[in-house]
Amino acid sequence: MQGLFTSFFKNVGRYAMLMSRVFVLPDRWRETVRRTFQEMSALGLNSLGIVVIISIFMGVIMIIQMKLNFSNPFLPPYTTGMATREMLLLEFSSTVMSLILAGKVGSNIASEIGTMRITEQIDAMEIMGVNSANYLIFPKITAMVTMMPLLCIVSMAMGFLGGYSVGWFSEIITTQEFELGLQFGFRPFYVFYGIIKCVVYGFLIASVSSYYGYYVHGGALDVGRSSTEAVVNSSVLILLADIVLTNFLLA
């Protein structure tokens, strides 16, 4: 138990130290901007497919489950659409989508940086006088922080599309009924709430995964282990951040 405690504080300390090296003025702005665009494409655009697919399916499934399990003549007809909307906007398109991306993007970042560490590529940068933490990690964090809100909006839209498609292709719900639900008592702030959460989650995924990759030592096995740790720990942190942010923004 005590060991767990000390290792927790050791990690937090090293993470803070790494971040203090990441957030300094870059050696070359042009290079940083170029790398940021590359990362936006590699980490953000490349995740578009999985976000679209999962969001559509979740929209479909939510409607079906809701209709099957909650249909009750005393409930107003807009209940299903409204509940689906709130779930998508409040939790699904931000938190659940981020958990999925923590798996995809987090392991990608940790194994990429970890491999660079064990093959001495990071040492090579340091010897040249390049701040490797800033050069490698800063563009990844910037890219995730900017792309995550976009992915969040896409996820919301695709979730609604999934809901509509149930109306188009089946008898479970009519599109009018779903649309009524979507509009009933709509609060635009919930969209912002989702976006704000995604900015924080994007920062967590990129920085925590970079941290686990950056401090790998050993061989290929250790890179694998660190990428698992990156995914587990950024997922836990996302859930903790969800509790904190919800208290701050909605309560």
Binding site: T115, M116, T119, E120, Q121, D123, I127
Partner: peptide, 13 residues
């Protein structure tokens, strides 16, 4: 002012 050749080459892949 330093250059270094690493054991594994350490080229950026």
């Amino acid at each position: 002012e330093m250059g270094m050749l690493f054991q594994g080459g350490a080229l950026f892949d």
